[in-house]
Nucleic acid binder design. Structure first.
Lengths: 146, 146
DNA sequence: GGTATATAAGTAACTAGTTACTTAATTCAG
DNA sequence: CTGAATTAAGTAACTAGTTACTTATATACC
C-alpha cells in the first residue's frame, strides 16, 4: 500500500514518524521536537565560540521561514531556555543566548536524534543507513544551490 | 552546514522543500499539495472499483490523524471536489465520492509528484534514486509494523 | 430487549509552517 | 546631511498536524 505511493507522501510519512518520536523525548523537558532542535543549535553555536547569534542564522540552519522562527524563539524565551537582547553593534539584530540550564543541550538533542534514527532504520544495515544519509545530504546540497 | 545536521532535521528540510514545490503546482487548481494528494487517493480508489470509500481508509493511506483528515475533507467538499454522504450500510461511516472534475486526478498528482522528485534529485543517478525509494519503503514498512 | 463495549466521525486547543505585509534600524547616493 | 534602498525582525491570516475529548451508531453479551 505504501509502496505504490508517490514519493512526496513517503517523505511526509517518515517526517511525521520521526517528529512524533522526537516529540515524546522532548516532552520530558517541557519542549517540542522543533524547539529542542533550535535550542540545540543555539547551544552548539554558543559552545563553538560564536560572537553573536542572530535569528537570521538559525533560520538558515533550520531552513525555517522568519515568522515560524519568531514564534519558536518566543516560546523558548517564555520558558526560560534562551534570552534575547538587541545587539549593541546593530540594533536591528537580536542577540540570542542560552541560559545555563540549556548550555550543553546540543549533545542531548544529537543523542536523541540518533536514537530515533536507529529506531526507524532498524531494518536497514549500517551501510544502507549511511547511504541514506549521503543521499539526503546530496539532495539538501541541491536545494541550497538555488 | 547541513551536512553535520541531525537526520531528523534533514528529513524535515527535504519534506518542506518537496511540499513547497508541489504546493506551487497544486495552486493552479486552487488546491494545496496535501489536498491534491488526498483527492488523488479518492480518485484512484474510485477508479479501481472500490465499493465505498471511507474517511478511515484515507487516514491509513496518508498516515494522517483523524482531526487533520476531517479538515482536509471539509475543504475538498466545500470547494466541490468531493461529496460526502452517510453510508446506507452503517451510518457511522461517511461515503466519499469524487465529482466529475476530479475523476482522473490521480494521474495528475502522480505526474506532478514525479516531476518534483526529479527536480529535487537531479544530482542523483537513476540507480541512486531507486535506492532512495527502496530505503524509504523499507522504513515505512517498519513504521507500519508497529 | 437492555446495557456495555467498540468504532467512525467531529470538536477544541494547541504547535508548526506558509505567504504577504508592516516596522524599525542601517547604509549609501546625491 | 537628507532621502532612498536594504535588511532584521514582527504581525496577520491562513493551511497542516497533533493529543485529548465528545457524539453517535452498531455490536455483543446477559
Amino acid at each position: 500500500m505504501s509502496i505504490a505511493a508517490p514519493f512526496g507522501l513517503k517523505i511526509a510519512i517518515i517526517n511525521r514518524a520521526f517528529r512524533k518520536r522526537l516529540d515524546e523525548k522532548a516532552a520530558a523537558m517541557g519542549l517540542t521536537a522543533v524547539q529542542l532542535r533550535i535550542l540545540g543549535s543555539v547551544s552548539r553555536l554558543q559552545a563553538s565560540g560564536e560572537v553573536e547569534i542572530h535569528q537570521n542564522d538559525l533560520e538558515q540552519i533550520e531552513h525555517i521561514t522568519h515568522p515560524a522562527m519568531t514564534k519558536h524563539l518566543q516560546h523558548l524565551e517564555r520558558k526560560g531556555f534562551i534570552r534575547c537582547v538587541p545587539s549593541s553593534q546593530d540594533r536591528r539584530y537580536k542577540s540570542i543566548t542560552c541560559t545555563e540550564q540549556a548550555a550543553e543541550i546540543y549533545k542531548l538533542i544529537l543523542a536523541q536524534d540518533a536514537e530515533v534514527f536507529a529506531e526507524l532504520c532498524r531494518d536497514l544495515t549500517d551501510e544502507q543507513q549511511q547511504t541514506l544519509i549521503d543521499l539526503a545530504d546530496r539532495i539538501i546540497r541541491h536545494i541550497d544551490k538555488e
